[in-house]
Design a protein around this nucleic acid. Structure first.
Lengths: 196, 196
DNA sequence: CGATAGGCGTACCGTATGGTACGGCTTGAA
DNA sequence: TTCAAGCCGTACCATACGGTACGCCTATCG
């Protein structure tokens, strides 16, 4: 099997796992079911991923990579701070409330090992972006994200509110993510603007 | 079996379930294991709770009741708005980051039916308190929680930030809940103070 | 004080799972 | 063109689960 084919096959298997998680939950996404859905052999799954946890770990890592590559472009844009922060917040919110992310998070919450992996991968892939972002936001010294960790925490809190928990519980509220991000941005700037 | 004994027995069974969830997770908290731990019969469990989901549902509802009765006293206190808000936030944070609440939330996140139940029970038991609280906070018209739903969402976001997700993932960050509540309160008041 | 409701413990059933083993076939490399 | 690596499909194993049945025994109530 050529390397590119192998990558595609691997992706297909992870996609199958994700589909089954969506359709039948953790219980339904058994190694049998995943193999059948992907037209793969159980033995192949075990050869490639070690065991069930390893497969799910691969799923989590793949997702973290895609998050990072989706989010990064939102940072480079040159525009008014509130616009670029809103853009970033919208992207982040779309990601974290999206169906895939919800499934991935459910997975990680159900298993301590996966939880640790997701927490690490997640914080590594999005927090540095946001940190650099907020600290360099300062255009003419009108906004000071200081102390930085509190500023980050406040922004994430204002952005997400209870929405992520609601999504994880399977009771998502309808949200205009762009409007939500704009609101969070406006409030956050109000908190961190250098007072006139 | 006298009624009070029955209630105690029921509580003991739910406690056993909670213990097993803590020690062995969702997979370990099987009906067998719960029955053995509580020195009860499987048949009794099924007679009292219907099935596994029913038992876990009972667990969720019991927890929601205890949350409500824990939180309610924090509302009545008469003091400066920021102090009473801080007290309330601390209590809420302690509850939501506490071991039991984390286990309960994990449970609900793993099962759509339980998720719906927890979402409803949770919102019913804490949101009205917070809503009434924020809207009546107004001492001399210096603070206006308006629009109310946004004010609530902002307060919860500032209070919880990413802490709850981290706890659910099993990577809790050490937090001084009182300090965190104080910070959130201070920021929230800054956002909702009627400007001089 | 006797009877009966109902909890305890154990055994049982069908089913599904994670994980392994093993032919047979495809496919990329020599 | 040959050959071997490795993937597919199926069968297999031990184990555990949710759920039910049943005999024993305690404790409540008439």
């Amino acid at each position: 099997m050529r390397d590119d084919q192998k990558d595609a096959r691997r992706d297909a298997i992870l996609d199958a796992a994700l589909d089954l998680l969506r359709e039948a939950g953790w219980r339904g996404a058994s190694m049998r079911a995943i193999a059948a859905r992907a037209q793969a052999s159980k033995e192949t799954l075990y050869a490639w991923f070690g065991n069930r946890e390893g497969l799910f770990e691969a799923l989590i890592r793949r997702n973290a990579l895609s998050v990072q590559s989706t989010l990064a472009p939102a940072v480079v844009a040159k525009a008014a701070p509130e616009d670029v922060l809103t853009r970033f917040g919208t992207a982040l919110l779309d990601l974290q409330l999206g169906a895939d992310a919800v499934l991935i998070n459910r997975l990680a919450i159900a298993d301590p090992v996966l939880g640790a992996i997701l927490a690490e991968a997640g914080r590594e892939s999005t927090l540095p972006l946001l940190a650099r972002f907020l600290s360099e936001l300062d255009p003419e010294g009108a906004i000071r994200a200081d102390p930085l960790d509190e500023a980050i925490e406040d922004y994430l809190g204002l952005l997400k509110g209870d929405l992520q928990i609601a999504a994880l519980l399977g009771v998502p509220r309808a949200v205009d993510t762009r409007a939500q991000a704009r609101r969070a941005t406006e409030r956050w700037i109000r908190l961190y603007a250098v007072n006139p």
